[in-house]
Computed example of a mutant assay.
Amino acid sequence: MDPAFERHYSELVARERSGHTAVVEGNLLYVWGGYMSVADDEVFLPNDEIWAYDLEGGIWKVFHMSGEVPPSMSGTCSCSLNGHMYIFGGCDDNGQTNQMYCVDLTDGKYMWKKIIHEFGSAPSPRDKLSCWVYNGRIIYFGGYGHKLLTDVDSRNRSFIVDETSWVEDVFWGWNNEVHIFDPIQSSWSEPQTQGRAPAPRAAHASATLGCRGYVCGGRVMETRTSDIHCLDLESWTWSEILPVSTAPVGRSWHTLTAVTDNALFLFGGLSVDCKPMSDGWLLDIETKKWREVEHPFKNKPRLWHTACPSKDCDVIVFGGSCDYILLVDTGHCNDALVFQMQPYPLFRICQDYIAKNVRTSEMLRNQLPLLPPKLLKSVQRRISFYRPSKKQNTT
C-alpha cells in the first residue's frame, strides 16, 4: 500500500479525490469512488469501502463494503432514495458503463446489490450524467458515452457524435436523453417529452425542486454553457429559464443544489477558458434572477466535486480538483466545505456558541455537565466538530 494511503487511513480522513459520488443520509455524508493522481498515473479509489463524515461531530469513519461490489470508477451518478444509495453509469478501466448498483445505508451492513432490471431497456453506457429523484423514481439526464452505429440516427438530435472519438462501428458523443428507473418495478422507460430540450451535454449540474428538474450548464460539444432548463416531471415538458440579471459564466464540472423551495445554489466548476472556479451563485426561480454569493472559500476553487444538501439548508461540498483535471498530477482535495445558505435556528446558534467557546470560558465548562444527558451528548458532538485539529472548513 502507498505510504500516503496508510497515513490518511491512520488519521481517518477520506482520501482526496475527484469524480467521486456522495449523498447525505441522516447526519452522515457518504462518499464513494472517484480517482486521484499518483505521480503520472490516475488511480481509482477502492470500490469496497465507503467513507462517512459525521456532519455534527466532524469525524470520518470508513466502512468495508461487501456483496456485488461495483468496479472502481469515476463519473458515476448517484442519489439517495428510501435510505439506499443508487449509482448508475460511470467510467471504469474498460470505459463507460450502464450498470446500476444500490446499497442500504441504514442497516450498517453496507452490502452492494447489482440491479438487474426486469422491464424496459437500460440507457447506453455513459458517464458525467445527472439525475433527479421524484415520486419514488430516478430520472436520468444527459452524459457522455458510446453507441453502436446502428443506434445512431443522424436525424435524431438527442445524441451528437464526438467527431474526434470513434472506433469502427462504435461512436462516442453527448446526449440529452431522459430515462426513468422505477426501483419498485425494476424497470426502465423513456418519457415522451414536450417542448425544446436542452442541447446534448455532459459534466453539467442538476437539482430537483418540487415536481421540476433543473439542468445548468455543462460541456456542450466544444464549449461550456451557463443556460438553465427545467423539466416538469409530471407533464414531461421542457422549458428554458432566461435570466433577467447577470448570469454566471459558462462552465462544466460544477454543482447545483436546491437550498430552499425556490432557490438553487451553483458552486465552482471549470470555465470556458479552462480556469477552476470558486464563485457561488443563487438563482431565484420565481424572479429568474441570479445573485452572486459572498462566502469564505474564494481561495478554494473546485471542479468535479460533490455538493449535498444538509439540515438547516447547509450545502456540503466535498473533494474535487482545485486545478484543471486534464493536467498531469492535478491537485485533488479532501476537505469538506460547509456553506451556510440560511440563518440558523436559535438551537443551533446556541449549540455552536457553546462548542466554539467552551475551551476559553470557565463558566461554560462548569455548567456543561448540568445539561440533560441527550442535550449534553449533542453539544459534545459539536465541540468535537470545532476541535482546532479538525481538517474540515466551515463558515
Score class of each variant (00 low, 15 high):
G213C: 12
D182H: 07
H179C: 09
Q185W: 05
A203F: 05
S165K: 03
K147N: 03
D162S: 00
V133G: 10
I228P: 02
T150H: 12
C211M: 09
A207Q: 14
S130V: 10
W132L: 11
F171M: 02
T150C: 14
R157Q: 04
I138H: 04
S154D: 14
R201S: 01
D227T: 15
A202Y: 12
I184P: 03
L129G: 06
P125H: 00
C131I: 09
E163M: 10
A202F: 15
D227W: 07
T237S: 08
I138R: 03
W172V: 01
E163G: 08
A205Q: 11
L242S: 08
R224S: 05
P243V: 09
K128I: 02
L231T: 07
Y214V: 03
S206H: 13
W188C: 01
R126W: 02
I160L: 13
W166N: 11
R157S: 12
S130Q: 01
H229F: 14
G143R: 01
E240V: 04
T164H: 15
Q185I: 03
V133T: 15
S245R: 13
G217W: 10
P123W: 00
S245E: 03
S186G: 06
G143F: 02
R212E: 14
Y140P: 03
Y134P: 07
C211N: 15
W174Y: 14
C131Q: 13
R224Y: 05
S130R: 13
T237H: 13
S187C: 06
G210W: 08
D151H: 01
V152E: 00
I184H: 10
D169V: 03
G217Y: 01
D169M: 04
G143Y: 00
R224P: 07
N156D: 13
S226V: 08
T237V: 14
G218R: 06
V167S: 10
W188M: 01
I160N: 03
L148W: 12
R126E: 00
S165H: 15
S235A: 15
A122K: 11
W238S: 01
R212T: 04
N176A: 09
S165T: 14
L148V: 12
S187V: 15
W166G: 04
M221H: 05
C131E: 06
C230H: 08
R126A: 06
P191E: 06
M221I: 09
E190L: 10
G173D: 00
A247K: 11
R212A: 14
